[in-house]
Design a protein around this nucleic acid. Sequence first.
RNA 1: GCGAGAGUGGCGGAACUGGCAGACGCGCGAGACUUAGGAUCUCGUGGGCAACCGUGGGGGUUCAAGUCCCCCCUCUCGCACCA
Length: 811
Amino acid sequence: MSKTYDHHAIEVKWQAYWEEHRPFRAVEDASGPKFYCLDMFPYPSGSGLHVGHLEGYTATDIVSRYKRMKGFHVLHPMGWDAFGLPAEQYAVKTGIHPAMTTAQNIATFKRQMKRVGLSYDWERELSTTDHDYYRWTQWIFLQLFKRGLAYVAEVPVNWCPALGTVLANEEIVDGKSEVGGFDVIRKPMRQWVLKITAYADRLLDDLSLVQWPTSTLEMQKNWIGRSIGAEVEFGLAGIHGRIRIFTTRPDTLFGATYMVLAPEHPLVDAVTAPDRRQAVEAYRQAAARKSDLQRQELEKEKTGVFTGGYAVNPVNDERLPIWIADYVLLGYGTGAIMAVPAHDARDWAFAKTYALPIREVIAGGDVEKEAFVETEQGTVINSTTPDGRFSIDGLAPVDAIPKITAWLETIHKGRKSVNYKLRDWLFARQRYWGEPFPILWVEGQPKPIPEEQLPLVLPETTNFTPSGNGESPLANLEDWLSTTDPSTGKPARRETNTMPQWAGSCWYYLRFIDPKNTRQLVDPSKEQYWMPVDLYIGGSEHAVLHLLYSRFWHKVLYDIGVVTTLEPFKKLVHQGIVLGEDNQKMSKSRGNVVNPDEMIDRFGADAVRLYEMFMGPLEAMKPWSTRGVEGVTRFLERVWRLMVNEEGRLSAAIVSSTPNLEQQRILHQTIKKVTEDIEDLRFNTAISQMMIFTNEMTKLEHRPRSLIEPFVLLLSPFAPHITEELWAVLGHHPSISQHPWPEFDPALTVSDRLTIPVQINGKLRGRIEVGANAGRQEIEALARQEAAEWLQGKVPKKIVYVEKKLVNFVV
RNA sequence: GCGAGAGUGGCGGAACUGGCAGACGCGCGAGACUUAGGAUCUCGUGGGCAACCGUGGGGGUUCAAGUCCCCCCUCUCGCACCA
């Protein structure tokens, strides 16, 4: 195998040069614009980097290198989201401390990243497991606690017996734990919870401030799930009390024919009639036994039982039977609904099953066949109070909603109300390998540890097995556990929970700005200089949780004056998944995993980088092709031969003569295309333009230096090693990364000759060549000649002429 | 079911506001240089013998549709009884 250039030698050489001279160090310098270019930092797993990581990292690296050459001060850092379950599970199995495993994995990741030539400012490297880092994670928690945004609550949690821990809703997929696929049951437990719901409106509204993919914005909106409606109070027949319900459709209040409480609703006992008690109790127990998975499987079949109690509709004093059914959820709204089978699909299905009445109050559909749920169409009917003093009849539903809501307020039976799907964030984990809570329990009350005593360091141990009673392995460490309250001297017990992995990744982008600061989380002047993150690239698996949690913390930090931007991440892009060569998702069991180290060994880092970007659009899911890597390798070899001879010296083909106009044009078109494509993250088409340029240059016997040198600069963000070497061969001092980006002359990007297609009835019939300044008359005359054969003397009905673009004869 | 996005050669993919469909690369074919080539270079490569036909399918708007409008099909991602 003969190589025209030795990628291994060149890459090692220039990586050593960068290591020594640090051209990628970020500096705060008011003299120039800044650009903060961030990758989602990885969890350093045992299997090392995969080619999917590399896609996003290469993209941000190209942008960072490009921006530096454009004169920006660029912050391009990397770190490690290193707390987490895999290292802990490994520790349980082997007894090896998670810190050891983590350190080894980080070393591997870092080595691989350096091999790829990623231009990080390594002086800012951080790990969420560093004491100096999680000190500030704990500090943020204390601020949340002080503001009442962190509280302890007895909440039904997802308990996973196999993992011996509680899981967040987000860590459960199809009723099983996301990690391991174990069964999960519901169980009440005392837990730390963060009040993210207090920020629901801001989290929703401020999405208008960011440039994010529409799908991600939609997912965040759906997750927050704001819905505007009304709370309405229904009296109870025969007993004291009332049922509060939430509805988005108060316009259908006259159509309510029964009520439903969630099985766990506290009012169930009070409304249940003695003869129904047994049936109700049986149903409640059955519902409690159902796991989330079973509830989903039974989605189609609606079940419930009648309680024997009745509620009274406030608009017409009708008695409505009260049922319990598990299609009503305790956790949403008030855990109770009015059922309007005519205009709600779920109520309709339930009413059909139990032969409950269906009363139409919006005309426009056929409620015997299906529920009519439109609000934009239809007319309200049968909706006048018995005394005739209030009516919404004849209105469109959208107009009836505010009218009846306002009326309910005047009679003190209801009010406008907003509900969210978003729940408070269950923040505690029963694990060892996480940030300890800076909290002491004194006489049953949580007390924050004084800030100056942070960090509260994770104690050493060799036993990583969960305590088994729902507490973390920290509960086994008696010496650490028992302490005294520093302010009162009273005995205290430490909180044994640790924080979830999300905690550390919620704010790492801020610490990169000022990673060594011992006095503050971040220096305010540096924060003002670098924030917000201008470009953030990472996987779409974080479209909701990480991005929502970060935004929440950021807003809290904004409120306490630590940050000055409302949103942390201005522009966000998700790189697509890289599939195996067989078009299937890469997995060890399929054996289709592509190893980046192997690819770099064979083809070099530049070729791998280039291929990662040439595969297709950044956001698209696309298969790996090793043939494709060979293709871009050929391209790099052609570039090399363009200017280097067989002895490795500057080729005699490189001349100092002035290029002709046509040659200048291809250069300037290339500069324009590559520049614009990098700005829009369209790296695949930028590369194809550089291939076109290279193909043109290959044809030339004499290659003017003034064409070749700017081209090497254009290629350098994509293939930084080979271009450093070429830059040196061309007689320049390193580093090419510090040389200004070439500019294009717009006048030189357009040709002086135009090829105009000639169409007849929209079908292509020929082409004509004209000068760039040719006018309509000249072009039309030529086009007529070109089309004469097809026109056969017929006179065109119409001639469509598009300026410098096309002529079309309509006959 | 709801929400978002996407369907273009043998393959990955180009085509910014409607204006030459298939750039660039892979693969394939032919040739050149060679003892040799799985190196390199050159040429060709959507289908069809042709007229013509071609961007998931069917309608429509337009001088002109991959691009705009309506209906349908398929795939990917997310949510999943949220009242």
